[in-house]
């Protein structure tokens, strides 16, 4: 499946902003960049729904809304069901000849809390039933809205307020759940991993996700300057490092067939380009405690996990 859509940067800049300025995301917010980029991929009428979380809050503080398209938020754990409800209603309207459009896209946004953890049941159900919608996971790797608590998406060793850098336990003991692989295992037609640093790749993937018939799942790394403890100007730099270290490789799975995307394919072909994980960790305060004699072995552990996962991904992409 290849999207026929071609775009220039100017095309995107001339498209109206769907997420209006005046939203109250923090300075340097990764998710806000992700939203803006994804919403540049729309192809026509669209309805959005969002799980409870940072982006829902900052974009709709009553009586203000930053949404120039129809938008609904209801709760934390049900955004996939909400998208399914909209999609089903649109189907019913179309059947009755009451839909003014040939097609309306449905997009669901959720953070890692709303996806890995509390929302996985609704997501799994909606994926199994095959509703036609794009689900965007903006992964800032912790519950940032409530003040940085660990989630199933928080990486090993990271500090959060519920996985503190203690004297005995240095950050989160568990590993990041392979959520996108879980979604591929559902047999849905499109799953992809994207980074806002590689915005062309991200926007193309969002477009593919909208174009495909059936559920599409887009996993996007979306750093949080507050929670990851770095300067607000470094957001994009970090998402680039995540790709270059293979912490967050870019790939897509079309009908379950994995393929690396260009920025990660380059590394697969030229392994010397793979940067040590340490370089990614050291720019983030949430890993600072690992740079001590006592806990630096955790950095090695993290490197091993990343290498293992990268190797497995290469196998899936027939590039081992």
């Amino acid at each position: 499946m290849a999207s026929k859509w071609k775009f220039t940067t100017k095309d995107l800049a001339e498209k109206p902003e769907i997420l209006m300025s005046g939203h109250r995301a923090c300075a340097g917010c990764g998710p806000a960049i992700v939203y803006r980029q994804i919403l540049k991929a729309t192809r026509g009428p669209i309805i959005a729904t969002n799980a409870t979380g940072c982006m829902e809050v900052v974009s709709t503080i009553y009586p203000y809304t930053a949404w120039s398209i129809p938008f609904i938020h209801t709760a934390f754990e049900n955004v996939a069901a909400n998208a399914a409800g909209i999609e089903t209603a649109l189907k019913a309207l179309k059947k009755k000849g009451q839909l003014k459009y040939d097609h309306v896209d449905v997009i669901a946004f959720a953070g890692d809390g709303g996806t890995y953890d509390i929302g996985i049941q609704a997501l799994s159900g909606a994926a199994e039933r095959g509703h036609d919608f794009l689900y965007v996971l903006y992964d800032n790797e912790a519950y940032m809205n409530t003040g940085i608590q660990r989630s199933g998406g928080t990486p090993h060793g990271a500090w959060t307020t519920t996985s503190p850098a203690g004297r005995v336990i240095p950050g989160k003991p568990e590993y990041k759940k392979p959520i996108a692989d879980i979604m591929v295992a559902h047999g849905i037609p499109y799953v992809a991993a994207a980074s806002p640093a590689h915005w062309r790749d991200l926007i193309t993937k969002a477009r593919k996700g909208l174009e495909v018939n059936g559920p599409a799942f887009l996993h996007v790394i979306a750093p949080c300057p507050r929670g990851w403890r770095y300067d607000t100007s470094k957001t994009i730099e970090i998402t680039r490092l995540a790709v270059d270290t293979c912490v967050f490789p870019l790939w897509e799975a079309i009908d379950g067939e994995y393929a690396l995307s260009a920025p990660s394919k380059v590394i697969a072909l030229k392994p010397e380009r793979k940067i040590p994980v340490k370089d990614y960790l050291k720019v983030q305060g949430r890993f600072r405690h690992l740079f001590t004699p006592e806990f630096e072995h955790v950095i090695d552990e993290i490197q091993q996990i990343i290498d293992r996962r990268w190797k497995r991904l290469l196998k899936k992409c027939d590039m081992a």
Partner: peptide, 9 residues
């Protein structure tokens, strides 16, 4: 590029 990376439009 600055346009694409601005969180705030």
């Amino acid at each position: 590029i600055c346009y694409m990376f601005c969180p705030d439009g």
